[in-house]
């Protein structure tokens, strides 16, 4: 907001509440990208977890990711499915070798908000959603994706991995990042959005449970994006804990009824001035 990253924007907002006497806990949240990396560095030092951005969109994204992690191999869906011979016992995907290379580091695939529940195959999978394609082509692509999921599941000897290809293809998040999520899950990892991953690192739920008020920020608050994925995530977590949420934004286009219907107690528009100064009066009104 206002050109500041999550940490710096949050610090300026938090200063207003601190000025009026509140105890403030700051948790930077962001979508995957440079802002996420900065927020993670602000939150915690280096750790052992491997975070992989799942920013692909097309159906070759999964094979490309596995090829990258393997240091080579078929990097397109057609090649991977065409050359995989799991049924004959020849494992060309070598998931186990990749897992060994990761040295049991926890693995998290970072996906765009909105993709954390997408599945790899089926009517709501990567192929099913391609309504721009004729049904014949959608079905053919879906068959390839299912075959790909079968190869991924069959090539792993990890008992904590997917039971079979059908299970993997139907797991929420397997379709994230153009299907790269399925590779992460086959490797025993999880698929999370940027805010989810940072929220986990920061134990956001515990922080919210200890708070009287949750304050979040965005550039614009309107009926199209409702402040964006970070605001959406914060509202969801605060609602789960029964805590009120207020939004600090540069511009607000939503009336009080719309705010309340979307889980926001109040929105404070601050324009382009100093963030802390602009929040002082608003913070005072919420301090008791």
């Amino acid at each position: 907001m206002a050109g500041f990253d999550a940490w710096r924007a949050g610090a300026r907002v938090g200063r207003a509440w601190r000025t009026v006497g509140a105890d403030v806990a700051l948790v930077p949240l962001a979508e995957m990208g440079p802002g996420w990396q900065q927020a993670k560095e602000n939150l915690a030092g280096p750790d052992n977890t491997l975070f992989i951005p799942l920013d692909g969109r097309d159906h070759d994204s999964g094979p490309m990711l596995l090829s990258f992690l393997s240091g080579g191999g078929p990097s397109t869906l057609v090649d991977a499915v065409g050359t995989g011979r799991a049924a004959s016992g020849v494992d060309l995907l070598d998931i186990d070798r990749v897992r060994d290379h990761l040295a049991e580091r926890p693995l998290i695939g970072l996906c765009r908000s909105g993709e954390q529940d997408t599945v790899l195959a089926g009517a709501q999978g990567l192929a099913g959603r391609r309504v721009d394609l004729p049904l014949r082509e959608r079905l053919a692509l879906d068959r390839m994706l299912r075959a790909w999921a079968d190869l991924l599941a069959a090539s792993s000897s990890d008992p904590s991995g997917p039971a079979d290809g059908a299970t993997l293809a139907a797991t929420p998040g397997s379709g994230a990042g153009g299907g790269a999520g399925a590779v992460v899950q086959a490797l025993g990892g999880r698929v999370l959005t940027g805010p989810q991953a940072l929220g986990e690192i920061a134990d956001l739920d515990r922080t919210i449970a200890a708070a009287d008020l949750v304050v979040t920020c965005c550039e614009d608050f309107d009926v199209d994006a409702w402040g964006g994925p970070v605001v959406e995530y914060v509202v969801q977590r605060a609602a789960a804990a029964g805590r009120p949420v207020v939004v600090i934004t540069a511009t607000n286009h939503v009336n009080l009824t719309g705010q309340r219907r979307n889980g926001v107690e109040a929105v404070h528009a601050i324009g382009t001035g100093d963030i802390t100064d602009a929040c002082l009066t608003f913070a005072q009104s919420w301090f008791w």
Partner: peptide
Amino acid sequence: VDRMSAPY
């Protein structure tokens, strides 16, 4: 009914 739609 196609294979993808049948479960629904």
